[in-house]
Amino acid sequence: PDLGLTQLFADPNLIENLKKNPKTSEMMKDPQLVAKLIGYKQNPQAIGQDLFTDPRLMTIMATLMGVDL
């Protein structure tokens, strides 16, 4: 199971919303991170391994779920 990750990354406004959010806007200036996020739309399971190697993803996930870290 993808634990709902498919829906989190399926939002067509995902990148724009993250660019507008004060907690994630600075991160979204990294083209490699943006490319990763776009890739998760097609393969949400890929985030599982990346969560352990890129701490920014935890902040992004929390933001998408509405959790304040």
Rank of each mutant, 00 (worst) to 15 (best):
P1A: 11
P1F: 03
P1K: 03
P1V: 13
D2A: 14
D2C: 08
D2L: 14
D2F: 08
L3K: 13
L3S: 14
L3W: 09
L3N: 13
G4K: 15
G4R: 09
G4N: 15
G4D: 15
L5E: 05
L5R: 04
L5S: 07
T6W: 12
T6R: 09
T6V: 13
T6H: 12
T6S: 10
Q7P: 08
Q7N: 12
Q7V: 14
Q7I: 14
Q7G: 14
Q7L: 09
Q7S: 11
L8N: 03
L8C: 05
L8T: 05
L8E: 03
L8F: 12
F9P: 01
F9Y: 04
F9E: 01
F9I: 07
F9G: 02
F9R: 02
F9H: 02
F9K: 01
A10F: 08
A10M: 12
A10Y: 07
A10L: 14
A10N: 12
A10Q: 14
D11T: 05
P12W: 03
P12C: 03
P12H: 07
P12Y: 03
P12S: 08
N13K: 09
N13L: 08
N13A: 14
N13C: 07
N13W: 07
L14K: 01
L14Y: 11
I15K: 01
I15M: 08
I15E: 02
E16H: 08
E16V: 07
E16Q: 10
E16C: 06
E16S: 08
E16R: 07
E16L: 04
E16D: 11
N17L: 10
N17H: 10
L18S: 00
L18A: 02
L18F: 02
L18E: 00
L18V: 01
K19C: 08
K19N: 10
K20A: 14
K20N: 11
K20R: 13
K20W: 07
K20S: 15
K20G: 11
N21F: 06
N21D: 10
N21Q: 04
N21G: 03
P22E: 11
P22K: 06
P22V: 04
P22M: 05
P22S: 07
P22R: 03
P22A: 07
P22Y: 05
P22Q: 05
K23L: 11
K23I: 09
K23N: 12
K23D: 08
T24Q: 00
T24W: 03
T24S: 03
T24V: 06
S25H: 13
S25R: 09
S25Q: 12
S25L: 10
S25T: 06
S25K: 08
E26L: 06
E26D: 11
E26I: 05
M27C: 03
M27I: 12
M27F: 15
M27L: 14
M27R: 00
M27A: 06
M28V: 04
M28C: 03
M28Q: 00
K29Q: 11
K29F: 04
K29N: 13
K29M: 09
D30A: 02
D30M: 01
D30L: 02
D30R: 01
D30G: 00
D30V: 02
D30Y: 01
P31L: 08
P31W: 06
P31E: 13
P31R: 07
Q32D: 12
Q32R: 08
Q32T: 10
Q32S: 12
Q32C: 04
Q32P: 03
L33D: 00
L33W: 04
L33V: 05
L33K: 00
V34I: 10
V34M: 04
V34F: 03
V34N: 03
A35D: 13
A35V: 03
A35I: 09
A35C: 05
A35W: 05
A35Q: 13
K36I: 14
K36M: 09
K36R: 11
L37H: 00
L37C: 02
L37T: 00
L37M: 06
I38N: 12
I38M: 15
I38H: 07
I38D: 08
I38L: 14
I38E: 15
G39Y: 15
G39H: 14
G39V: 08
G39P: 01
G39A: 13
G39L: 06
Y40H: 03
Y40T: 02
Y40G: 02
K41Y: 08
K41V: 12
K41E: 05
K41S: 14
Q42H: 15
Q42Y: 13
Q42K: 13
Q42I: 10
Q42T: 15
Q42D: 14
Q42V: 11
Q42C: 07
N43C: 05
N43W: 06
N43K: 03
N43F: 09
N43D: 10
N43P: 02
N43T: 06
P44I: 09
P44H: 09
P44C: 04
P44R: 01
P44M: 04
P44G: 06
P44Q: 06
P44L: 08
Q45G: 12
Q45Y: 12
Q45H: 13
A46F: 10
A46M: 15
A46I: 09
A46K: 09
I47E: 04
I47P: 05
I47Y: 11
I47D: 05
I47W: 10
I47K: 01
I47F: 15
I47Q: 06
G48K: 12
G48I: 13
G48A: 13
G48N: 14
G48W: 15
G48V: 12
L51Y: 10
L51K: 05
L51T: 06
F52M: 14
F52W: 13
F52N: 07
F52T: 13
F52Y: 14
T53K: 11
T53D: 14
T53A: 11
T53W: 10
D54N: 02
P55K: 14
P55L: 07
P55G: 07
P55S: 10
P55Q: 06
R56A: 10
R56I: 06
R56M: 06
R56C: 05
R56F: 08
R56G: 05
R56D: 09
L57H: 01
L57T: 03
L57I: 13
L57Y: 04
L57Q: 01
L57F: 09
M58I: 15
M58W: 13
M58L: 14
M58T: 10
M58Q: 11
M58H: 13
M58R: 10
T59Y: 08
T59P: 03
T59G: 04
T59F: 11
T59V: 13
I60Q: 00
I60G: 00
I60D: 00
M61T: 06
M61S: 03
M61N: 01
M61V: 15
M61C: 07
A62Q: 11
A62N: 10
A62I: 11
A62Y: 07
T63L: 07
T63C: 05
T63Q: 08
T63R: 02
T63D: 03
L64K: 01
L64W: 03
L64Q: 03
L64F: 06
L64T: 03
L64D: 00
M65W: 05
M65K: 13
M65C: 07
M65A: 12
M65I: 09
M65D: 04
M65P: 03
G66K: 06
G66I: 07
G66Y: 09
G66Q: 10
G66L: 11
G66T: 10
V67N: 12
V67Q: 12
V67M: 15
V67I: 15
V67P: 15
V67K: 02
D68E: 06
D68Q: 05
D68Y: 01
D68G: 04
D68S: 04
D68H: 05
L69R: 01
L69S: 15
L69I: 14
L69Q: 15
